[in-house]
């Protein structure tokens, strides 16, 4: 994994995975940042492309991403977004699947808390058949935090045998927190397997009582449930443990876990 710690080098960048090559990068947006980042991402035939974005910018700052992704035949693409800190973090993703048998994975995790607004908008188009898109985005909103998931997956008429799975699960930790969720499917082919879903709720109070009855404090019980909810996204981000551990540390830091 190649780490990009200085986001200024990436205001307008192209990331290309050449045929048969692996390109794995992680953008760590941190510190004082008020930017729009435009990324042009291309996974060529038989390539493996991972692009991970972790947002831990200062709490007064704003960052916006416009990301265009093209997936060619047999490419394997992961584009992940984890938004932990910042005043406004807005991510717009357009994915064009133009080749057959591409695999696209779009995991996301938004953790807005006090005065934070994190949005995730995506538009995925299957233009060619036999490809797969898996999009699992989770939000945990605390205080008056705002999380917004808006995702379209569109399957063109000639993209037969497409497989898509889109699911957005959200947890509200406070009555002032707000979450909007709009998963959408547009299917114009008749031989496809597509699903989408969305859930939003508070933490399972029965599970919390069950844990407390074993001697686990309210706070620890809540953290164990949150950790489990979050880890399901983190574990599937990448094979790269170093990056996953980095993200876990940042999250633990934010949520005040041990």
């Amino acid at each position: 994994m190649e780490y990009i710690n200085n986001i200024y080098d990436y205001q307008k960048a192209e990331i290309i995975a050449q045929p048969e090559q692996k390109t794995h990068r992680a953008i760590i947006a941190q510190g004082t940042v008020n930017q729009t980042i435009q990324l042009n991402v291309k996974a060529m035939e038989n390539s493996s492309l991972e692009l991970h974005i972790c947002n831990i910018i200062d709490n007064e700052d704003t960052i916006k991403y416009d990301i265009d992704v093209t997936a060619e035949e047999n490419s394997n693409v992961t584009l992940s977004v984890v938004s932990i800190k910042g005043k406004n973090v807005d991510v717009n993703i357009n994915v064009n699947i133009i080749g057959k048998n591409a695999e696209v994975n779009l995991p996301g995790l938004l953790l807005p808390s006090k005065n934070q607004s994190f949005t995730y908008h995506s538009n995925v188009i299957h233009k060619s058949g036999g490809s797969t898109t898996i999009q699992k985005v989770r939000t945990v909103a605390d205080d008056n935090g705002y999380g917004d998931f808006f995702g379209i997956i569109k399957v063109d008429p000639n993209a037969q045998k497409s497989v898509t799975e889109q699911v957005n699960n959200n947890i509200l930790l406070s009555t002032d927190a707000r979450i909007e969720s709009k998963p959408q499917l547009e299917i114009y082919a008749d031989d496809v397997k597509c699903s989408h879903g969305s859930t939003t709720g508070m933490l399972d109070q029965e599970a919390i009582f069950y844990m407390r009855s074993r001697g686990i404090s309210q706070k620890t019980a809540q953290n164990l449930l949150l950790e489990a909810f979050i880890n399901e996204v983190i574990e599937n981000l990448s094979q790269d443990n170093e990056y996953k551990d980095f993200v876990k540390d940042q999250i633990a830091n934010k949520l005040g876990m041990e």
Partner: peptide
């Protein structure tokens, strides 16, 4: 008994005993 997805039996017991 309540199902707790993502929390392993060992971690659950470790938290309970140590708290």
């Amino acid at each position: 008994p309540v199902e707790i997805p993502g929390v392993s039996i060992n971690n659950f017991m470790k938290a309970a005993i140590n708290e």
